[in-house]
Measured scan of single mutants.
Amino acid sequence: QKEELKEKAKEAVKRGNKDKARELLKRAGISEEEAKKIIKKIE
């Protein structure tokens, strides 16, 4: 489940939808700070 949400978040970032990505990562139980780092890494 968590990995699936991370994959979806990756796709969202690639489409330029960072808010959606952050939302998905939060749903995966990832903190706001972690989510920001992950999104930065994907960009």
Rank of each mutant, 00 (worst) to 15 (best):
V13C: 08
I42R: 01
E34D: 10
L5E: 03
S31K: 04
L25A: 06
K6W: 15
A12E: 12
E4N: 10
L25K: 03
K8V: 05
R22P: 03
L5I: 06
K26Y: 06
K18T: 13
D19Y: 03
K41M: 14
E11P: 01
I39F: 02
A28V: 02
K20P: 01
L5G: 01
E34F: 04
L24A: 04
A21P: 00
K40L: 12
G16C: 09
A9Y: 04
E11N: 06
I42L: 13
E32A: 10
I39P: 00
L5Q: 03
E43M: 11
E3F: 03
I38V: 05
K6D: 03
K40H: 14
K40V: 10
E4P: 03
E33I: 08
A28L: 08
Q1H: 12
K26G: 15
G29Y: 00
K40G: 10
D19F: 04
K36W: 09
E33M: 07
E34N: 06
E33H: 08
I38S: 01
I38G: 00
K6L: 15
K40I: 12
Q1P: 09
A9Q: 02
K14H: 09
R27A: 15
R27L: 14
A9V: 14
K8C: 14
S31C: 04
K18E: 08
L5A: 10
K6N: 06
I30C: 13
E7S: 09
G29Q: 01
V13G: 03
E34C: 10
K26I: 14
I39N: 00
G16A: 03
K10Q: 07
I30F: 15
G29I: 00
S31T: 09
I39M: 07
A21S: 00
E32P: 07
G16F: 01
I39G: 00
I39V: 05
K36C: 12
K14S: 07
L24Q: 06
K37H: 10
R15G: 10
L5R: 04
L5M: 08
I30Y: 15
I42E: 04
K20A: 13
K8L: 14
N17R: 07
I42C: 08
K40N: 12
E7W: 05
A9N: 02
K40A: 14
A9M: 04
E4H: 10
R27K: 14
K2M: 14
S31A: 07
E34V: 06
I39D: 00
I39K: 00
I38F: 10
E32W: 09
I38K: 01
R15H: 11
K6T: 11
E43W: 09
R27M: 13
I38H: 02
E32Y: 07
S31G: 09
G16H: 05
N17I: 04
E32R: 06
I39C: 06
I38T: 02
V13Q: 02
E34L: 06
E33C: 08
E32M: 07
L5H: 03
E4V: 10
K8N: 06
E32L: 08
A35D: 00
K10F: 09
K41P: 02
K41W: 13
K2T: 12
K18M: 14
G16M: 04
E3M: 08
K36H: 12
E33N: 07
I30A: 05
E7L: 10
L25R: 03
Q1G: 11
V13D: 01
A28N: 00
E7Y: 06
K2H: 11
K37A: 13
K37R: 13
R15M: 13
E32K: 06
E3N: 09
K2Q: 12
Q1E: 12
Q1F: 13
A35G: 03
A9S: 02
E3H: 09
E43R: 05
K26N: 12
